[in-house]
């Protein structure tokens, strides 16, 4: 785990505003505008009626704000064949998300635990290989996996997509937990062994309760990662389970006739809502997750 940036005491902040500091704040202000612009535009567009969008200015605040577009996006926007809104995608994404996060963390933590504390022959080779393959693009696996799943009769289904997320989450999850368990004092593990605790007992009773901070980080990483996935859901979930990102793309990019930009932006915001909530709700934990996921190997 790398050091996470900590705020510095305010007392050491220079008191006078020199020209250089004005320049500094100007730079931060202008870049902040670039970063905030899309969010602002999404929100105001989603609250405007179409007439106002056609005549008005992209940046203008809505004259007569209405949540009509939000209601339409949620309940009746068309995703290709059906017109039941993005809520279908939202529910699908939830059904994919919950088991995928739980199972990938379970398998990843167990693998990390076995690789860190138990001297299994070939463990280092397995771990090293997992870190290397994490870099391979999905395009290398997708077709063979489609064939394997259709051969086993699972085809495209909820179970398939959950397994797929577990598989592709395994390297990062293993890394996360292996490094954490390896940093714990080994005496703890030895004492449990002396007391006669077995492999799974130590895992469930001692290691996992101690790993709560890592579990939080893992939940954040997997939740945003799986919610934001597009390609895997598109290929493996099947028509009835398409996740929210895929449905959103269908709503926006397969419209016939005039596009309802307010509905599009409302649907986009709805799709971004959960990761945004996780991000703003978790604060520094999110940064910790990035740091942990970033430092592979």
């Amino acid at each position: 785990m790398t050091a996470v940036a900590q705020p510095l005491p305010a007392a050491r902040r220079p008191k006078r505003m020199t020209p250089a500091r004005w320049g500094l704040y100007a730079f931060i202000f202008i870049t902040a505008l670039y970063f905030l612009l899309p969010l602002y535009v999404m929100v105001v567009t989603s609250l405007k009626p179409m007439a106002e969008i056609r005549q008005g200015n992209l940046l203008a605040l809505p004259i007569a704000p209405s949540i009509e577009a939000w209601v339409k996006a949620w309940t009746s926007a068309c995703t290709g064949l059906t017109c039941q809104g993005i809520k279908i995608g939202f529910l699908n994404s939830l059904r994919i998300l919950v088991p995928s996060v739980a199972i990938s963390i379970l398998v990843g933590s167990l693998t990390g635990y076995a690789l860190s504390l138990w001297r299994v022959r070939g463990a280092n080779i397995l771990f090293g290989a997992m870190m290397v393959v994490a870099f391979i693009p999905y395009q290398l696996f997708i077709y063979p996996l489609v064939r394997v799943f259709s051969f086993t009769g699972l085809g495209q289904s909820l179970l398939t997509i959950v397994m797929i997320h577990t598989i592709f989450g395994l390297p990062t999850m293993t890394l996360l937990f292996r490094n954490y368990f390896a940093s714990l004092p080994v005496e703890l593990f030895k004492a449990a062994r002396v007391d006669g605790a077995g492999f799974y007992q130590i895992y469930a009773r001692i290691m996992m309760p101690m790993a709560t901070p890592m579990i939080v980080v893992a939940v954040i990483l997997q939740t945003t990662g799986i919610w934001n996935d597009f390609i895997l859901g598109l290929v493996f979930a099947g028509r009835d389970n398409l996740p929210m990102t895929v449905q959103l793309n269908n709503i926006v990019n397969s419209t016939q006739g005039e596009r309802a930009y307010n509905v599009d932006m409302a649907a986009t915001l709805l799709t971004a809502l959960l990761p945004l909530a996780v991000y703003f709700g978790s604060g520094r934990w999110f940064v910790r997750g990035i740091a942990a996921g970033a430092v592979k190997g």
């Binding site: 870049t31 970063f35 990761p275 991000y279 703003f280």
Partner: peptide, 11 residues
């Protein structure tokens, strides 16, 4: 500066 990173490429 960091919030966009939480959002998907589709969004």
């Amino acid at each position: 500066f960091l919030y966009p990173y939480s959002m998907s490429f589709v969004v």
